[in-house]
Nucleic acid binder design. Structure first.
Lengths: 162, 162
DNA sequence: TTCCTGTTTGTTATACTGTAACGATGGTCA
DNA sequence: TGACCATCGTTACAGTATAACAAACAGGAA
């Protein structure tokens, strides 16, 4: 394939990454208002921290950061916030890394397919209906009805492949 | 789809499951011999325990069992055996469950797609080239070269769907 | 055989990941 | 105001996994 379009997460330069964070927080704020759920300062802060890069964030790294800002932070502090953000589709959990990544198009909770660069650590998200359909069809072919799926691919992003 | 062929793991009745275990152990024995790697009693035993059902085995459950048979067992005992079995393609790790499942067609280490029934807990394995290709193609379309993938689907098997 | 070497296992300790349980706080609404 | 429910603080602990080093052991070389 010639000149493939590079996924945003792999294109994003650090110097304009602030826009990604603002966008994520603004969207979350709007969606929470629509749903009548509370986007508390803690939840907002954890979302910002998760979005501090296009790299997965580990729960205990987030906790270290929170502790700097508020001494009373403990594991439940960060896990509860992450649960909320995952349930509301603002953040995804990466099972193969025990880590969390901001959702590219927040809104309804949804699966997705994650491309994890083993070199730079960045993660891009696909949400491809064709893939979902094919997987559902293949499962159905052996009598299995899929309800939710985890799809994570490790490999090399275009930039790191050089 | 009418009369889908049910995956072996979902079909297998407990009373003829012994055959699955024997088959897995025999295959592993042969493959290890071919490769010149050692299929020690400990590794054999852990493989048997992993295969004790078509349900995922947790590392610390395996450890409990091992402790009954040999008091000196400790976490590294089971994790090292599991590492060996995974590296050699006899066992898969299920990332979304932190658990391990026997490989249906042992041999080369390979990915696969796992169908996890949320009702009975059984897990079936697909190894569908079409799926792999489509995923590789979709990743490549955004400039990403996939090397290994984790695909796990939670849902209902035919039997549990009734 | 005996020694050497590399692999496997034993052992202790510890790091990392996640949750239970209960009380305190604070927002919302009758 | 008071009652209720969600959120957060706090302590404790459960569950998952690895580091590091010593002991045992298999297999080949001398």
């Amino acid at each position: 394939m010639v000149n493939p379009e590079i996924a945003p997460a792999f294109r994003c330069r650090d110097d304009d990454h602030a826009a990604c964070v603002v966008n994520a927080v603004t969207t979350a704020e709007r969606v929470c208002k629509e749903r009548g759920v509370r986007f508390t300062p803690l939840r907002r802060r954890v979302l910002e921290l998760v979005w501090s890069g296009h790299r997965p964030a580990k729960a205990y790294q987030l906790l270290e950061q929170l502790k700097l800002e508020h001494a009373g932070s403990a594991p439940p502090t960060v896990y509860r916030a992450l649960d909320f953000l995952v349930d509301n589709g603002f953040v995804h959990r990466l099972e193969s890394l025990n880590a969390f990544i901001g959702c590219g198009d927040a809104g309804e909770k949804h699966g997705g397919q994650f491309l994890i660069c083993r070199e730079c650590g960045r993660v891009a998200e696909l949400d491809d209906p064709e893939l979902k359909q094919l997987l559902a069809r293949k499962a159905q072919a052996v009598g299995f009805t899929g309800e939710s799926s985890t799809i994570e691919v490790e490999g090399l992003c275009a930039r790191c492949a050089g």
